[in-house]
């Protein structure tokens, strides 16, 4: 098997960054997320490869929080489209956890299927290579297996790393793109047989089985009121979620020039569904809260066959008022069917 010694990481990154924008899980000041290798300051920033994960998910790389769409000029009655900003820059995300790779899969499902291909997403995604850091130590809020994925395997990861401690990383090329990249850096890999690490068990038992079906009849159930009571309808959960993909389209104009951009939006905001005439189909916080969880646990499953949650536990860790998606699944399951 191929082994990447840990003292070769710097060499590897330096080589990868020559032909692609490389992102590493990093603690940068008060933020932890996937940051560009180019912007890293070794004396200030901390690599988070051995941490469970980082707070800001990698979705920003394939679906930027703010993304230019196109620019235009206008003068009098005339309008000219100037530039369409599709971005095919080669990118490599190094050290993703399985939950985050799977979430990119789900973004693929959204942006590539059902009639239309989102060209902005496609240009980024098709040029992004994913290097999975297999997960052997699930955290206290982890439940990826319950959401239908394996913490150590993935079909869409191009390369899978298994952290074997001092022996280094076991390097597995998992796709054609992964094998091609492996060929280019083979000289820094070693051939050696070592044993895979022993995974620790999940600390939290979660069972998604039947939840989508159960929720189908719970839209008007009174349980949504107490469940949503603590929610302040901020957008933190939706913005740290690696799966949440909703976006807004906005315009900036200055003088005769302007550009249209898209930016993440959140179903938690009242403005999200507010119609021009003033009618809002989801006026209350409870309705927005309900839509968020139903979207994740029921609607997305009905539409695409899998839930819009990969069990990363970020929303659980960062909710200012202690809302917990696991608890919501459990409470939904506990509701009497007739209610």
């Amino acid at each position: 098997m191929k082994i990447l010694k840990k003292n070769q990481l710097d060499t590897l990154w330096e080589r990868l960054a020559r032909n692609a924008e490389l992102y590493l899980p990093t603690q940068k000041g008060d933020q932890s997320g996937f940051f560009s290798y180019k912007t890293l300051k070794p004396e200030k920033d901390t690599l988070m490869l051995d941490a469970l994960n980082v707070y800001l998910s990698p979705k920003n790389i394939v679906l930027p929080q703010t993304e230019m769409m196109y620019s235009f000029t206008h003068q009098g009655q005339e309008i000219n489209l100037e530039e369409v900003y599709e971005d095919p820059t080669p990118r490599i995300i190094f050290g993703l956890r399985s939950c985050d790779v799977k979430s990119i899969d789900r973004l693929d499902t959204v942006f590539f299927t059902r009639g239309f291909v989102d060209e902005y997403y496609r240009s980024r995604r098709e040029n992004t290579l994913l290097i999975l850091n297999a997960c052997y130590h699930p955290g206290p809020n982890c439940f990826c297996e319950a959401m239908g994925l394996s913490p150590r395997e993935s079909e869409s990861a191009d390369i899978i790393l298994h952290d074997a401690g001092e022996e280094g990383y076991i390097w597995v090329a998992n796709t054609e793109k992964g094998r091609e990249l492996t060929g280019n850096i083979e000289d820094i890999l070693e051939e050696k047989e070592i044993s895979y690490p022993q995974p620790r068990p999940f600390t939290r038992e979660v069972d998604y089985t039947g939840v989508a079906e159960k929720l189908k009849d719970m839209f008007s159930h009174p349980i949504w009121h107490p469940l949503s009571d603590p929610c302040i309808n901020c957008g933190i959960c939706t913005y740290v979620c690696p799966n949440c993909y909703c976006f807004d389209i906005q315009v900036k104009t200055r003088g005769e020039e302007g550009y249209r951009y898209r930016c993440w939006d959140s179903c938690m905001y009242g403005e999200y569904t507010m119609m021009a005439g003033g009618h809002n189909p989801r006026e209350t916080g409870m309705e927005r809260f309900r839509n968020r969880f139903l979207h994740k646990l029921e609607f997305f499953t009905e539409r695409y066959g899998e839930p819009l949650c990969t069990g990363c536990g970020r929303c659980i860790a960062v909710c200012p008022t202690g809302i917990n998606i696991i608890e919501i699944m459990e409470k939904a399951k506990g509701v009497e069917p007739s209610a």
């Binding site: 939006d265 179903c267 189909p281």
Partner: peptide
């Protein structure tokens, strides 16, 4: 039906009623 729409191509999320998108 009518809902607020931004993308029109079933991606941006807001015009859902249950698992259906009004735009698509």
């Amino acid at each position: 039906l009518e809902m607020r729409m931004k993308c029109g191509i079933g991606k941006c999320g807001r015009c859902n009623i249950g698992s259906e998108y009004i735009c698509l």
